[in-house]
Amino acid sequence: MEQPGVALQEGACYAEVTPDALDQSKYVELVADPGAGAIASFVGVTRNSFQGKATERLEYEAYIPMAAKKLMEVCRQACSKWQVRRMAVAHRTGTVLVGEASVVIAVSSAHRRDALEACHWAIDELKATVPIWKKEIFQGGEVWKENEEWRQQQAAARLAERGTAAAEGEVAAQHFAGSAQPGAG
């Protein structure tokens, strides 16, 4: 199931979801900036094993328009948290063989610390928020993977949601008790 890609450009941020092979140098060049003293990049590649099993390939599937939007949000947030000159994030869809790249992040900044930290934060945030899935095909089977970063973020969100709901329930209960009192008295 080949999905056509999409690329978004907003100010200093570039986000792309593509079925094509990723070339790290393309994104490093995209973030080149005369005011930059550093360019940090991250490349996520398919490993040949998982927990002792030989991985044959990964199959990536994306909710393309939402994934591109969420990748752009990751870029924008990184740019607001660190002093970033330019930033690019690209994720591949479809079959990604062992040794091939599934994701590339490139960040330029005046000083190295901003680029390095923004790059590190961005890959974790991507794994927690961007609607992309991978199925791992290994010898003798296949499995849909689940990111720990997503699980943690969902657990935290549920806790916050239920905390609010519980607090609202408490307020409602108090209100009920309060309004019930005159009638009871």
């Binding site: 996520g44 990536y60 994306a62 909710y63 328009p65 939402m66 994934a67 939007k69 994720h91 599934s102 994701v103 890959i123 991507l126 794994k127 927690a128 928020t129 961007v130 609607p131 992309i132 899935w133 991978k134 849909w144 993977k145 689940e146 990111n147 997503w150 699980r151 969902q154 969100a157 549920r158 949601e161 239920r162 709901a165």
Partner: peptide
């Protein structure tokens, strides 16, 4: 194209696009 919380309820209108999002695994 925006996530809803697990217990969040939103009113729907004609033309809305809803997606079922199982645990993600990008990266």
């Amino acid at each position: 194209h925006e996530y809803l919380g697990t217990d969040e309820e939103q009113q729907l209108k004609a033309g809305d696009e809803v997606a079922v999002i199982p645990p993600i695994s990008g990266g």
